[in-house]
Design a binder for these strands. Structure first.
Lengths: 199, 199, 199, 199
DNA sequence: GTGTAATCGAGACGGTACGTCGAGTCTTGTG
DNA sequence: CACAAGACTCGACGTACCGTCTCGATTACAC
């Protein structure tokens, strides 16, 4: 019956896996997509390049996973249910701003975003694994507000989220204006105000 | 005609200059920053690579200029003074959306944005020549609205602009949601609505 | 008879053995030493690579054995005693030329000869198993001729054999001149003529 | 006259060329075709790998040229006209044996011979540049003997040469029997004796 | 029968070299 | 001088193959 497919061959080394991701996190996050080479990563991980390529078909996919892990690493994903939409959004944005500004995520995010323009397939993966996955939670916050009757049921949630995160990413990427918790709060306020009237 | 400041040697070839930018526009816009090589560009322009590097210190700077020229090429920058802020913004965004969606700008913009993360110096140039230059006009529209008393004098113009363009770029870059003229109008409406209440 | 040393564990699979040699013969003979990979051979034999390496320490040794088997496969090693040295040598060379020209032995022979230059140990094995083993019979033909008084007892048999096979291999390896049964006969004639006078 | 094609661009660096061939001679001759890597050669030559590949399409072709140069390096190609065929052949073989036995040519020769079996194109080059080029002179020695009336005009020169060099290469490659000047002389004698009677 | 021991298939792994590509620099000869 | 041609350096890329290793599953002989 079952378990038929229980591993036949040599089991894949979780050790190696971890080492690769560790090296990728460290080197790619630090030096960026082009700043770190696969050879370096392999060396640093004490692993052969072939082993990396066995599991990650490209540098970009490896970087994506490293980014994801690093991103999710220090999240205290406290179920943020503060009772108000504004409160929930603030609770989401507070740690987001910290991560986004403290650590060197932006270079990788920018590089992978650029890669997504060149490779439709990667773009798909990028959307699913980076964008959509964190978006799901954010959408829920709006859904709750709708259930509460706090905002109009017809609110375009995706647009609202794009206005919030689009604005902040824009500043992050071009660094022409500061990104901070207060700024994030103001963005939330503006968006919320806008929602009300367009209802 | 004279040519007073004629140097000693062979005069610089405007012809070559134009050819380089033409090739850069064509190839870089079409295939992206990594998709086109300097050798290809030189070949296509019928120019030596050294000549390119004499005038543009790097591929990125060349791409930046090509992007700028292409961007400004088909602009009917009719001084758009419609009398209302909403009208002015719509007038600005209508051609913007066309350019941004019709032509292949996004890959280059994304690639150069990524480059800006790696190179502080390039980031500076990027901000000045790409961001700020088009921003000036946009800001003026808000300034006019303030003078008209249409919006609060303390309005954070930069934030408003980031909310508009940030949102649209966000969608452009990740293609998770559509970008269209109606969408752009809705963004304007939301932002304007937000401005009012936070005044 | 033997089987005395029957071990404790699972007996070695004769099936696997045959399959490996079969695959080796087929693939190595067809594509050469570098043209066929161990992975391919293992796959084709339906056997794991480790099983191959358990019994053959290296690709070269496996190839050697495959070559030997294939070489000896279609030999009608009719004890060729024709009564004269010339007749015996012709009887030996006739099938030799066929094998050497018809099938794809030369690439393997060349590759293994090259390997013998790099690895003294393999060179030893190569000499013993490939050269010497087929040489024994050839030498006997000369010994018979000496017993018959057909040629001088002091004839340098090894030199004679080297002159015959060296010449033919030379042509085989560099393909600058044809190898055929008539050519082989002429070589024999020349060598025999030479022997007589140097006696 | 010609010279029309005198380079426009940067002239190829004879320095680099020499360095590459020097490194190739040293490393490939010393460690063999597989024992030396292109990276090592590039390093040793103080040259980039790309430069090597610009001029030599493959490791094998580079090795061929290195072999040729090294082979021809220490030749005192004294026009050997001793008056007799035997004398001429001895004069040719004396230095040949020295080169062939003293220096580490055989591994490379064997490896390239093996390569010639895999690649028809390389085989062609190999024959032309290694075999035929040195053969031309050897053939002339026989032609002279024919003109002198020393040997039959119908002598199969190529066969005679194959018998001489084939025999010696055979011993060189398999090392089952010694190669020395006396041995070479005996081979010559045998071949010459054979020629006479088959005339 | 149950334990012990060798073998096998599957397949991951480290290592090492390959040949390719692109950016940017440098060296000539020519206009 | 500015330019065209193009050789050169540097360094990364992704691929391929070898031989080793780790497992779990088999298949005997021995107790």
């Amino acid at each position: 019956m079952s378990s038929a497919k229980r591993g036949r061959g040599r089991p894949r080394s979780e050790e190696a896996h971890r080492a690769i991701l560790g090296a990728a996190e460290k080197l790619l996050l630090k030096h960026g997509l082009t700043g770190a080479s696969m050879d370096e990563i392999a060396d640093y991980a004490g692993v052969s390049k072939a082993t990396i390529y066995r599991w990650w078909p490209s540098k970009e996919l490896l970087a994506l996973e490293a980014l994801l892990r690093s991103w999710d690493a220090d999240v205290d994903d406290k179920k943020t249910d503060t009772g108000t939409l504004r409160g929930d959004l603030r609770a989401i944005l507070r740690p987001w701003v910290k991560r986004a500004t403290e650590r060197r995520f932006t270079p990788l995010v920018a590089a992978l975003t650029a890669e997504a323009q060149r490779d439709r397939h990667f773009a798909q993966t990028w959307r699913e694994r980076f964008m959509e996955s964190r978006r799901a939670g954010d959408r829920e916050v709006f859904a709750r507000a709708i259930r509460r009757g706090e905002i109009n049921a017809k609110t375009d949630i995706d647009l609202a989220l794009d206005m919030i995160f689009g604005t902040l990413y824009h500043r992050l990427l071009h660094a022409h204006q500061p990104v901070s918790v207060p700024v994030a709060y103001r963005v939330v306020d503006q968006v919320l105000a806008g929602l009300g009237s367009s209802a």
